[in-house]
Design a protein around this nucleic acid. Structure first.
Lengths: 124, 124
DNA sequence: AATAATAACGCAACACTGTTGCAATAAATT
DNA sequence: AATTTATTGCAACAGTGTTGCGTTATTATT
């Protein structure tokens, strides 16, 4: 069977995302990582971390992908709101807030991606 | 002042989006439009239609941008849920459903982008 | 209806984002 | 230490979106 290995690049990138208070895009991670590894490797590491469920992917209203480690509460939930600042373009997880919604019963739900945009506390 | 003009390409593209029951991406519109106009023109027309507030932009969980004309109810609201099918990749507006949520008061809200993903009625 | 002003267009070129194949490297197991 | 193979780097490619500029076509004005 296919196992997963922990490499220097993978741990370093996980640390970057872990220690950031905003969600990071691939290009932001690339800048932060410097010459840690090739940019293709960053893509592959991000994919793996998402599959391993230690980070999650967020699409901003402009279609840019960002990655964040969410606070794991009692049971981990991706069912929370993200805030996307139109001014500084930062994306943050609003872990405390859980949206309430319903969909028609013939739809089956596998995941949610809720993003509210506007101005964050720093930019208001 | 800068005025807006109605051209054949613009009306045709608006018709395409209008008559589609799912949200359309740029490339889908390009295929449907054939040799109606250059692909750069499609980008510019989409931007204008969004600014004119007759269509709205949706980011799928994979960061792909799609465009749709939403049903205008009594007062037009972009504050509804979109459904993104993981199988057929279609995006539809669930106009009837309005999510309930709260954000901390130091955030100011200008827009929302709520996408639920899973399997649509056709793919369940 | 002809003219003038300029929004919109086509084309070419570019920048950014993400993917794939393959040989080389390094992590985990024996 | 040797073996297995997951992971990496590199090169090349594909898709997505943008910009500049000369030309075309829409709209308003005469």
């Amino acid at each position: 069977m296919k196992t997963t290995r922990s490499t220097t690049a993978k741990t370093a990138i996980y640390e970057l995302i872990m220690n950031s208070d905003v969600a990071l895009s691939h290009s932001e991670i690339q800048k932060l990582a410097g010459d840690l590894c090739d940019r293709v490797t960053i893509y592959r590491i991000l994919d793996r971390l998402v599959i391993e469920d230690v980070i999650h992917k967020i699409a901003t209203p402009d279609g840019l992908l960002k990655y964040a480690v969410c606070q794991k509460t009692e049971k981990h939930s991706h069912n929370h709101i993200h805030f996307s600042c139109e001014n500084c373009l930062s994306v943050t997880c609003l872990d405390a807030v859980e949206p309430i919604f319903e969909v028609p019963e013939n739809y089956s739900i596998k995941g949610v991606n809720f993003t509210v945009s506007g101005f964050c506390p720093n930019c208001s």
